[in-house]
């Protein structure tokens, strides 16, 4: 180990945002959730909106997010985060509100709430973490699970005959008039992390201007659920998930 780095005039260039608590995260080693949690809090820190932000995290791996995010938060029932966020925002229009939902939450049990929240153009940020599996409950099939992908409830691989097709909900909601900014990112590489941060920044800025729903899908990994090492899971993500869920902006604000 290199012990001593005696560089003159050392400058701090990166540290954990102050808006993140010191509680160690419960996420499995290498899980993308930690990075996404951190990015949201970095943006909140930089925009200085810690005192004006309410986060909503539902059942799933997101459920203990309130332990890490040093902001006021509401834990929502499974699938209902966007309805809960709607409630918060409608009676507190001056606050910044975001929901943070997994694929099972947002695209299966909460599909109705997702579609209608976006359709009303609720002035919130919806973060959709898609890792194509139910992580918290032990690796069951998600609506976004790929054809052939093995999970504990599709042990021989997801079949179209039995389970239908992977649900591409982000493209679906992007067609709704209430959607203002819809984009898809990942956190498996340093540059993708940088891009996601910019998208979160933009979304909060749009929210300030009451533009409508901002929706960010993050393609993430689930090393434990997929049964892979973190490194392998990121490779698998790049080879399999991203071709099905291509990264980039899906709906961008039209320039006036």
């Amino acid at each position: 180990m290199i012990n001593k780095c005696e560089i003159e005039d050392l400058e701090l260039v990166y540290e954990k945002p102050k808006t993140l608590t010191d509680t160690p995260m419960h996420y499995c080693p290498g899980c993308g959730h930690g990075v996404i949690n951190k990015l949201i809090m970095e943006v909140i820190d930089e925009l200085k909106i810690q005192d004006k932000t309410v986060g909503v995290a539902p059942v799933g791996c997101a459920v203990f997010e309130y332990r890490y995010m040093d902001i006021d938060m509401i834990e929502a029932p499974h699938g209902r985060a966007s309805a809960v966020a709607t409630g918060v925002k409608r009676v507190n229009p001056d606050k910044y509100v975001f929901s943070y939902q997994g694929d099972g939450d947002l695209a299966a049990i909460g599909t109705s709430e997702t579609i209608h929240t976006v359709n009303r153009g609720e002035n919130i940020l919806m973060l959709f973490i898609n890792n194509a599996i139910y992580g918290m409950t032990g690796g069951q099939m998600a609506p976004t699970t790929l054809i052939g992908q093995k999970t504990s409830t599709s042990p021989f691989g997801r079949s179209v005959k039995n389970n239908g097709f992977p649900l591409n909900i982000t493209e679906l909601i992007s067609k709704l008039d209430g959607a203002f900014y819809v984009t898809r990112h990942s956190v498996h590489k340093p540059n993708s992390v940088r891009k996601l941060k910019k998208a979160i920044q933009k979304s909060f800025e749009y929210q300030k201007e009451n533009k409508g729903t901002c929706f960010i899908e993050v393609i993430s990994n689930c090393p434990a659920g997929w049964g892979m090492t973190p490194l392998k899971s990121n490779e698998w993500l790049e080879e399999n998930l991203i071709p099905k869920y291509p990264l980039g902006d899906i709906k961008v604000p039209t320039k006036n």
């Binding site: 930690g34 951190k38 956190v187």
Partner: peptide, 8 residues
């Protein structure tokens, strides 16, 4: 390294 670190 810090950017991709899930545990900050």
């Amino acid at each position: 390294c810090a950017l991709v670190c899930p545990d900050s």
